[in-house]
Design a binder for these strands. Structure first.
Lengths: 214, 214
DNA sequence: TGTACATCAGTGAACGCGCGTTCACTGATGTAC
DNA sequence: TGTACATCAGTGAACGCGCGTTCACTGATGTAC
């Protein structure tokens, strides 16, 4: 038995039994990502995250100043994901701005529905207390900037009107974000499948976009 | 000194020093309303609520089954407030449905901004776990119904189009709710005064409503 | 190549805390006779 | 009107829990010579 078990391949991809973990920083983030969706940000505990990463409950303090810092890191990753998603939508239809917004909106909803607690974390109270020179603020700003660029280009090309770019950006973002929050937070609007979610999102977007087209 | 202090009028409106409180149920709700905005739902503790109501920390259990029941009662009141607000908007301009939506949207934003934690509680994870025959579900349903009626009337009168009433309701609600959540949850959109909030809300609503008008 | 040492990631015991909830109780209220 | 009693709202001690964080530590790694 000793011989056999010793020859089995190691279970995880980092060296089992070693004192040093190798990439605990990322392992903690992954564990936290996973637990966040299960428990919500309010009940996410550092101790549980550490346990999930297979490490003592004080180890995280080598990588994050405290609990808040870990949550902030998760939120930053969330905003980066949102930004990437918008850039992909932009690239998917370089000549059709309306299609870019549609694709971005659909993707936003998919991500939000698949990661409700991430979304709540990102737009919960945390952002209001964040200083303007923090990485979190910059990540959020960056995401906003991407949406702004898309819509500003659309207005420059005369694809659609609206009084000013700021307002159109805010209206578009509000619509998509609001729909996401309502899907996450009500039983009334409760699509059972991704296809159903796409259908709902598509028709809501169309109501808005058809009005916006010049 | 004894004589003087004994003749002073009682400080609160219920009898000081009496063993029974008189209206602890409502006092607890009021205390919770107040504390909720200070601490957020996650950190709202029954013990703190009881302390605020001037009562031992076990007294609340005579009026609410547990912590969750108290939160639910707060959320129900929130939905009723939202419904009232929509009905007032409806009554304020019986002949102008667009104006009803505008007034409703402005009021929604005011309430949400003044009660961020209430709003987060109402549209947080709680609603997803609620059974369909609970009072909370009914209150939310009722609020939705009021908005539906306004928009359905508008469509019946030919004031605006859209593919179907459900979609228009969802789009309108998403827009207003999303704007509220963004104002609550970002520093980018951060109106300093009620007037500024009204201006932002007004222009976002206009972008939407102008597209909707038939 | 080998050795001494600095650095640093992870450990485990310990701290103090506030929480939700249960329990047997006590004091006030209201009602039946 | 007075008395006995049931009801019920509020009390305070006690429970067990999991948490964030600090601390002195230990084991592994990497680097200078």
């Amino acid at each position: 038995m000793d011989e056999n078990t010793q020859k089995l391949p190691v279970i995880s991809d980092h060296c089992r039994g070693s004192y040093h973990h190798g990439d605990l920083h990322n392992s903690l983030l992954e564990a936290a990502d996973c637990l966040l969706e299960q428990t919500g940000a309010a009940k996410l505990s550092l101790r549980e995250v550490a346990k999930h990463a297979g490490v003592s409950h004080t180890a995280p303090y080598r990588h994050f100043k405290n609990r808040a810092a870990l949550l902030e890191a998760i939120a930053i990753a969330g905003f980066r994901r949102l930004k990437t998603l918008l850039e992909e939508a932009e690239a998917s239809a370089p000549d059709d701005i309306v299609q870019q917004l549609r694709a971005g909106g659909l993707a936003y909803l998919q991500v939000a529905v698949n990661n409700p607690e991430h979304t709540r974390l990102m737009f919960g109270g945390m952002m209001k207390e964040v200083s303007e020179d923090s990485a979190l603020y910059a990540a959020a700003e960056d995401t906003y900037g991407t949406l702004y660029r898309i819509i500003d280009t659309g207005r420059a090309r005369g694809v659609f009107g609206g009084s000013d770019t700021e307002t159109v950006v805010l209206a578009a973002w509000s619509l998509v974000h609001g729909l996401a929050m309502l899907v996450l937070g009500t039983q009334k609007i409760n699509p059972a499948t991704p296809a159903e979610l796409d259908a709902i999102t598509g028709s809501v977007l169309e109501t808005f976009l058809s009005g916006l087209r010049a």
